[in-house]
């Protein structure tokens, strides 16, 4: 189960939409024990591609420091799939950097964006529910 605030949810979707036609990406800061995301860190996709993303390494460092200074940590990453469903691709799985992270996919294939979250441990994909709270 991944908990996100409405503000985080809206920021993720907005960042993905404004990133079109390329994939967009960002990091999620929060409480790893509670699986609660409290801060969305939209980042630049330095791959600048509609089919690939790479989080800007310098923005990752800044996000990591900001999250840790607030007593949190980076607990996941989100990115968009512009023309496919919100399911991890083989690329997403092989490059998943941390088994404790939450991997959020935002599909922009249809008019209404679809947001889903996964755990990826040892290349095994498990979907988890996403709850959106007002605060």
């Amino acid at each position: 189960m991944l908990h996100v605030t409405e503000a985080v949810y809206d920021q993720m979707v907005a960042h993905c939409l404004t990133g079109l036609p390329e994939e967009a990406c960002g990091l999620l800061g929060g409480d790893p024990e509670a699986a609660a995301v409290v801060t969305c860190y939209p980042t630049r996709n330095v791959a600048a591609s509609a089919k690939l993303y790479t989080v800007d390494p310098k923005e990752h460092l800044r996000a990591d420091r900001d999250a840790e200074s607030g007593g949190h940590s980076i607990i996941g990453v989100f990115h968009s799939h512009t023309h496919t469903e919100a399911y991890p691709s083989p690329t997403d799985v092989t490059q998943a950097p941390d088994p404790t992270w939450h991997y959020v996919l935002v599909s922009l294939r249809d008019i209404r964006p679809v947001v889903r979250s996964y755990r990826i441990v040892g290349e095994v994909i498990t979907e988890e529910p996403v709850t959106v709270s007002s605060r």
Partner: peptide
């Protein structure tokens, strides 16, 4: 010195992609 994972991926080669 800070070490962080390189965070990357994407939809390329997705076996679950719909045909275009």
């Amino acid at each position: 010195v800070s070490i962080l994972p390189a965070v990357a991926g994407g939809a390329v080669d997705s076996s679950r992609s719909l045909p275009t």
